[in-house]
C-alpha cells in the first residue's frame, strides 16, 4: 500500500474515534424521550445500512431482501430467550450466526444471477421469509411475539424507562459495523470485491474466486443485519412479521447507504442522519392526519437526493481525492 492510502486510512481512524466520542456524549444533555428515541433509531439504522453496504456497496450486489436477515435475527434472539431462556445479550451473537449462515443458502442460487435478476431474486427471497413466518404458528404467526419484562438488566438487555443503555448498545453495534467495513476496505477481500464490482471478467482472470468472495460478503452483511434485528426486537419489546420482515424494511435498511454514499465508510451514517429524522419528523408532524403527506415528502426526498447527488451525500464532505476513489 502506498503512503497516500495509509495516510487516508489513518485519517479515517481518527475521524472514527472523534465521531464515536461525539455520539457517546450526544445523548447526555438530552432529557426529551422523543429525541433520545430518534437518535437511537438513527444510530441503529446507520449500523444496519453499513451492514448492507458490505454486500450492496463494497461487493456491488444490490440486495433488496435484507428484511429477511433483520427479521430472522429478531426472531432468533427473542425465541431463544422465551423458549430456551438464553439471555438476549448472548442472543445477539446467536442472531448474528443464524442470519449470517442463512445468507449462504440464499446466496447460493441468487449469486448465479446478475444485475436486475439478482435484485429481484432477493426481493422474492425476502417475501418468502415474510410469508412463511406469517403462517408459522411456532413463531407466533401473524400475532407476533411479546417479550415480557423481567426487571432491568444488561444480560436481558431490558431497561424500563432508561434510554441511555440502548443508546450505547446501538452505538457499539454501529461502531462494530464501521470497524468491519474499515478492515474490509484494506483487506484482500475488500480488493477482491472492488475488482468483482468493477469488472467481473477481469477479476476472474486475475484469479479472484468470485463466488466465494460474494458468499463471504453476504454472510458478514447478513450476520450484522441479524444482530441489528435482535437489538431492535429487544428495544421495542414486540415483533411480528409486519414490523420486522415486511418488504419495506429491506428498503429502509438499504436507503441510508444508497443516499449517503455506497461503498464509503461514512455514507451510511450520513444517510441515516438525514433520512431517519426526516421520516420520523414528517411522520409525527404530518403523518397523524393519515393523509400520506409524510410518504409524499419521504418519497420526494429520495427521488431528489438520488438525482441530485448520485454519488451520495457523502460527496458534500471531504476532499477531492476521496471522490475520485469513490467513483
Amino acid at each position: 500500500m502506498d503512503n497516500a492510502i495509509l495516510r487516508r486510512r489513518k485519517r479515517e481512524v481518527l475521524g472514527g474515534v472523534i465521531v464515536l466520542a461525539a455520539l457517546a456524549l450526544l445523548p447526555l444533555p438530552i432529557k426529551d424521550v422523543y429525541t433520545q428515541n430518534l437518535i437511537i433509531i438513527t444510530v441503529l439504522f446507520a449500523g444496519l445500512a453499513q451492514a448492507w453496504n458490505i454486500l450492496g456497496g463494497y461487493c456491488g450486489q444490490i440486495s433488496l431482501g435484507h428484511a429477511l436477515y433483520f427479521g430472522v435475527g429478531g426472531y432468533v434472539s427473542t425465541l431463544l430467550y422465551l423458549k430456551a431462556g438464553l439471555p438476549p445479550s448472548l442472543g445477539l451473537f446467536a442472531a448474528f450466526g443464524v442470519s449470517g449462515l442463512l445468507a449462504l443458502p440464499v446466496g447460493w442460487p441468487c449469486f448465479r444471477l446478475s444485475g436486475h435478476y439478482y435484485a429481484i431474486a432477493t426481493v422474492v427471497v425476502g417475501e418468502i421469509g415474510y410469508l412463511l413466518f406469517l403462517n408459522w404458528d411456532f413463531v407466533g404467526g401473524a400475532t407476533g411475539v411479546f417479550i415480557p419484562f423481567h426487571g432491568e438488566s444488561w444480560a436481558q438487555l431490558q431497561f424500563k424507562t432508561a434510554k441511555l443503555p440502548y443508546h450505547y448498545l446501538v452505538l457499539a453495534f454501529a461502531a462494530a459495523t464501521w470497524l468491519t467495513a474499515f478492515l474490509l476496505e484494506g483487506s484482500r477481500w475488500g480488493f477482491a470485491w472492488r475488482a468483482v464490482k468493477d469488472d467481473v471478467t477481469a477479476a476472474r482472470s486475475l484469479g479472484v474466486n468470485i463466488f466465494s468472495s460474494k458468499m463471504a460478503a453476504a454472510a458478514l452483511s447478513g450476520g450484522f443485519t441479524g444482530m441489528g434485528g435482535a437489538i431492535y426486537a429487544q428495544y421495542v419489546g414486540y415483533i411480528d412479521p409486519d414490523s420486522v420482515l415486511a418488504g419495506h424494511f429491506s428498503i429502509l435498511i438499504a436507503l441510508p447507504a444508497v443516499l449517503g454514499g455506497v461503498s464509503t465508510l461514512w455514507g451510511p451514517l450520513i444517510g441515516a442522519a438525514v433520512l431517519m429524522p426526516a421520516s420520523e419528523l414528517s411522520r409525527s408532524y404530518l403523518g397523524g392526519s393519515g393523509r400520506g403527506v409524510d410518504l409524499m415528502l419521504y418519497g420526494g426526498l429520495i427521488v431528489i437526493v438520488a438525482l441530485a447527488r448520485p454519488q451520495g451525500l457523502v460527496s458534500l464532505f471531504g476532499r477531492k481525492d476521496d471522490h475520485a476513489r469513490i467513483a
Binding site: 455506497v262 426526498l301 429520495i302 448520485p310
Partner: peptide
C-alpha cells in the same frame, strides 16, 4: 451509480404515489 440511482428514483416515486 447509474444502476442504483434508477432503482431508487423509481422506488422513491412509488412511495410518493402511494402517499
Amino acid at each position: 451509480n447509474r444502476g442504483m440511482v434508477q432503482i431508487f428514483v423509481t422506488f422513491g416515486l412509488a412511495i410518493f404515489i402511494r402517499g
